[in-house]
Nucleic acid binder design. Structure first.
Lengths: 113, 113
DNA sequence: TCCAGTACTTGGCTATACATAGTACTTTTG
DNA sequence: CAAAAGTACTATGTATAGCCAAGTACTGGA
């Protein structure tokens, strides 16, 4: 058990949440998302992102259309389905609760310390 | 893929973080932690907590001593080791970064929406 | 002795993030 | 026009956390 591994575990699920958020605000393709996540300091590699997108699409949360590119192969532009929007709302609630709970534990710790 | 499962994934690593925090503020045994987590609205079951404590102990982050109880079997009272304290500091940093990153993605979303 | 309560343990299951390697298409370059 | 480089996407195998469910061990009371 090392710190790095726990950090990885901490990201689980949260990454999915962030990606749904990014897609929620407009049609994007994978490289757009990678740029966006990198700017937010959430480093992700291709091998993580692409399978995740496929999974979300197969679950009916996303849909995509092919768009020709002027430099390279065509791209998949993703957007949320209605199901995806509902799902994102549910996740947002969970995330907020989780942050609150964690904050509660930390705050109480400071009071007693 | 359902919401519940993603919620479970979101908890990964965070639970460990919370438990280390709880132990950091004083010696406690498992039921104390369960109560504390329940109050913070982070429901955990025994089958999750006990293996986690064993794992943290084997990793050298925790140590425990047996304490007799007046009602029932003796209890393991845990406390952090020095290694555990350092580990918790690292996790705290990671968690704060993660919250910031997530907030960054969400905030930007609202600006464009 | 039998029963209920408390504390802790164990085994099997599922799902995600990662590393790594590979495919397919397009544009550039000699 | 053929080879190389770049872009976008795919596939496979590994490790690990959290959950469920059942089980063990000890205590005290009827």
């Amino acid at each position: 058990m090392n710190l790095e591994n726990t950090q990885i575990q901490m990201r689980k699920g949260i990454l999915e949440f962030c990606i749904l958020h990014i897609i929620a605000r407009g049609e994007v393709y994978a490289s757009d998302m990678l740029d966006e996540l990198t700017r937010a300091k959430m480093i992700v590699v291709e091998g993580t992102l692409y399978p995740l997108l496929t999974r979300l699409k197969n679950a009916g949360l996303l849909e995509y259309k092919w768009v020709e590119s002027k430099s390279g192969p065509p791209r998949k532009y993703y957007k949320l389905t209605d199901t995806g929007s509902s799902f994102l709302n549910g996740l947002t609630e969970t995330w907020d609760d989780l942050v609150d709970s964690t904050e509660a534990v930390r705050t109480k710790s400071q009071v007693k310390a």
